[in-house]
Amino acid sequence: MICDRAGAVVHGYFDNELDAAGAAEFELHLEQCSECVYALEDLESLHASIGLAQLYERAPATLRKKILASLGPARPVAVFPSRTVWRWLAVAAAILLATYVSWRVTSLGHSGNYDTVLAAEIVDAHLRSLQPGHLTDVISTDQHTVKPWFDGKLDFSPPVQDFGDQGFPLQGGRIDVVHGRSVAALVYARRKHFVNVFIWPTDEKDRAPSSGSQQGYQWLEWRKGGLEFCAVSDAAPSALEELHSLLTSN
């Protein structure tokens, strides 16, 4: 038998395009329709493969520079009495222009780099975890099993809580590597999506969450109580915000 929802509805659900009622209704349907479950799993695995294949092609730095140079700051138009003054002003303007352009280029490049590098690493780690058998090292929905599992494996103790009642059941935990250091990864389920929450210690002050997306994956990052958190998923951005408020509520 061919389920009539295995087409557009599965895609709509997978892409977070159904409204809340439609999504809830489809989830009920999923419990009794293996065809739709398989269709959804196929979509997830295709999405993960596309992410892993790194098909996204960023603009090369040279192109960014070329475009910035072609925009160029507006040049003042004025008439000066003496040719000497004009010449000196031209030299000064050229220096200012060059300084301005290189400052714009380096400052853009710099801030861009940090976020891009971190986000790319987090998304890579998330994608790796979606490969069969990679998601969790300790499989348990019980926070009292997952938390002690981390003891002795990390030089810090990550907060582990189950939010099953709030729509984010804990699936387990794992040690991962981000930024060249070992980090804790907590895995939560959100409907049919997985959320990885990466946690590692930081000396920086607490920071409100900032978010972004990379290759179609959303991430939300914040700092609290000497720990840095980064949640990543292909669930809707609002889901990550919900999880953030759960994780920071106590």
Binding site: Y56, E57, R58, A59, P60, L63, R64, I67, L108, G112
Partner: peptide
């Protein structure tokens, strides 16, 4: 606009 340069290029 410039932050979307990567999207434009991709």
């Amino acid at each position: 606009v410039l932050p979307h340069l990567d999207a434009a290029h991709n």
